[in-house]
Design a protein around this nucleic acid. Structure first.
Length: 618
RNA sequence: UGGGGCGUCGCCAAACGGUAAGGCAGCGGCCUUUGGAGCCGCCAUUUGUAGGUUCGAAUCCUACCGCCCCAACCA
């Protein structure tokens, strides 16, 4: 319990202000603050607290997802905003049958990657097992807890229903001595799993089901990932969580709405026991994002049933997956900030997340050229065997990013859907007889279309204007379109993975007809194996994200090599042409390698989701 | 049907009795060597509904309607 050291030092121990400081309520401006920050501002103004201690308390039974990201940002940012405050990372490891070390490591990596630091305050509920046990004994001594020999079925049957009160256990009135003895023997391993449990003695007739003599301890003869076989009784969430908060001097214990009903129990337990501090639980609405699902149970199924390659498959809504896909940590943070904190159910559009991803990538990602679906172009009047290097800006949004040289030669590749034999209105790209600009290179004019026996276009014959080197015509003539390209001879091959949404509908219903299987988007992954990239892409390391001009942002995947990079499409560029083409009704090209884009159906029967059985907020 | 929470623009979200911020999406336009980015403009006479209080109501009161959560020895 040496939890009293604040990162920033010199703050009041439990966060509660010393007497003299409190006094008259100061007026604080809370305008524009979310309700949690409002509460905190008032606590600070009234002198109730001098600083804040929050915590992010994941259970190590799976990887963190976008929903956790919101809780992480909220808790850690609060600690950053308020002087002398801190945020703990606490693993809520009270259930040895589902928890593993693999997850505690993954979770730490994810939180760190998101940009947060818990300093000295890495904690485990399992560190408090002894203290928790002593608190339980205290409760028994007070006559407020008892050992119940009923079976799980009996306990359930006697619990009553939502409209009917439960009935008291026949073991409810055992003496303190007997309970003490029985609990000691539970701990000593004398009973089998399920033989008995420790229950609080509260009120079987309470309209709040959580208050009907809730179970505090159960027997589990399982090895725990940290305590090994030291224990065979493990505390339940409701008992462990509030006390762990109190032991760590947490001031504001933020969790998701499904724990609202548990608050009376949270408070009851703390009211019965003498703890070093008195935390306050505050509930907020969990984050829901379109086409994503945030239930560790479900995500685990998606992984285990092989619908994706793993927890970090770029289609997953996990933090590890978003990292692999190329979502910048900053984008996720800005997204969470923008979404806000409130108590109403929500479903944030996937487009909103993508907006934040594009926003930071636009500022930070270097530009390169690459072709997803190559169409060969021969520039007839360009000397055979010749090559030259053209200067290209690395990031127009960031002059400091400098420039590079891109090789040019007689044979190049352009994007297949940058050419149309019979261009519709408003199609500004290449067409027979039309002149366009090759980015950073020359104006070219299409002279001839070469087809195979099947009538498929296999090559374009063009001419270039040597006067337009770099992309400007000395005579001032303009072109409507600028195309990206790659020198055939110099380019390197690439595999490009295009991702659509993992789920088919904005508000997936894996519990409905067809189950999980039917709710998945069958087109969530499209692999392009014929990609060609300008050679300098080889210089990027796995994990780095670049923009392929006019196409989108792509992250180098660890599966690739320098010789043959593998690119994960992070997000497409906004594609005005796709919208125009659609509006024009033209069956024109759909843009560059679109696949499985959200179709925009917003089916939802009611808002919000069934609570994650492993809700992320606590 | 017991208890609890929540209803403000298509999606988020401010407004705390003084006359509906902002973001996303969308729609126009400008600009552009990325149909990207950027810039400009438009986008709730009305806050689930119906009453009431008040000079004045999204904010207070009443009733109704709707959505979500709670009956794991999970968290």
């Amino acid at each position: 319990m040496s939890e009293e050291s604040s990162n920033a030092g010199r703050s009041g121990e439990s966060g509660v202000a010393s007497e003299g400081r409190s006094g008259a309520e100061k007026e604080v401006s809370t305008s524009g603050l979310d309700f949690i920050r409002t509460i905190i501002a008032e606590d600070l103004a009234s002198g109730r607290h001098t600083h804040v201690v929050t915590r992010f308390p994941p259970e190590p039974n799976g990887y963190l997802h976008i929903g956790h990201a919101k809780a992480i940002c909220l808790n850690f940012e609060l600690a950053d905003e308020i002087p002398n405050s801190r945020c703990h990372l606490r693993f809520d490891d009270t259930n040895p049958s589902t928890e593993e070390t693999e997850y505690v490591e993954g979770i730490q990596a994810d939180v760190r990657w998101l940009g947060f630091d818990w300093g000295e305050h890495l904690h485990f509920t399992s560190d408090y097992f002894e203290a928790l046990h002593d608190y339980a004994v205290d409760l028994i001594r007070q006559g407020k807890a008892f050992v119940d020999d009923q079976s799980a079925d009996e306990i359930r049957a006697n619990q009553g229903s939502l409209t009917e009160p439960g009935t008291e256990s026949p073991f409810r009135n055992r003496s303190v001595e007997e309970n003490l003895d029985l609990f000691a023997r539970m701990r000593a391993g004398e009973f089998e799993e399920g033989a008995c449990v420790l229950r609080a003695k509260i009120d079987m007739a309470s309209p709040v089901v959580a208050m009907r003599d809730p179970i505090l301890y159960r027997i589990q003869k399982k090895s725990h990932h940290r305590t090994g076989n030291a224990w065979c009784i493990y505390p339940m969430y409701d008992f462990a969580h509030c006390l762990s908060d109190a032991l760590e001097s947490i001031t504001h214990s933020l969790c998701t709405l499904e724990f609202l009903d548990h608050r009376p129990l949270y408070d009851w337990i703390l009211d019965q026991l003498s703890t070093p501090s008195r935390p306050r639980q505050i509930e907020f609405a969990r984050l829901n994002v379109g086409y994503m699902v945030t239930s560790k149970r479900l995500l685990r199924r998606v992984v285990e049933e092989g619908h994706v390659s793993g927890w970090d498959d770029p289609r997953m809504p996990t933090i590890a997956a978003m990292r692999r896909r190329g979502y910048p940590a900053r984008a996720i943070r800005e997204f969470c900030d923008a979404v806000g904190v409130a108590k109403r159910d929500n479903l944030i559009s996937f487009a909103n997340l993508e907006f934040h991803v594009r926003q930071v990538l636009n500022r930070e990602a270097q530009r390169r050229m690459g072709i997803l679906d190559p169409l060969k172009v021969v520039i007839e009047n360009y000397p055979e065997g010749e090559e030259e290097f053209l200067e290209a800006v690395n990031n127009p949004e960031d002059p400091a990013a400098g420039s590079r040289e891109v090789p040019f030669s007689r044979e190049i590749f352009i994007e297949r859907d940058d050419f149309m034999e019979e261009p519709p209105r408003k199609f500004f790209r290449l067409a027979p007889g039309r002149e366009v600009r090759l980015r950073y290179a020359y104006f070219i004019t299409c002279r001839e279309v070469v087809k195979n026996e099947q009538g498929e276009i296999i090559e374009l014959r063009c001419t270039y204007d040597p006067e337009t080197r770099g992309g400007d015509a000395p005579d001032g003539r303009k072109v409507k379109g600028t195309l990206h390209w790659v020198s055939a001879r110099h380019s390197i091959p690439a595999e490009v993975r295009l991702y659509g949404t993992l789920f088919a509908e904005e508000s997936p219903d894996p519990k409905g007809e067809g189950g999980l299987e039917a709710s998945l988007n069958p087109d969530s992954l499209e692999i392009r194996r014929d990609g060609r990239l300008e050679p300098s892409v080889a210089e990027f390391a796995p994990g780095e994200t670049i923009q392929l001009e006019r196409i989108g942002y792509f992250c180098l995947d660890p599966d690739g090599s320098r010789e043959q990079p593998v690119l994960n499409r992070t997000v497409t560029l906004r594609d005005t042409w796709a919208r125009v083409a659609k509006k024009e009704g033209a069956a024109g090209p759909q843009g560059h390698g679109r696949s499985g884009e959200p179709s925009g159906k917003r089916k939802r029967k009611g808002r919000g989701k069934k609570a994650d059985p492993e809700g992320e907020g606590r």
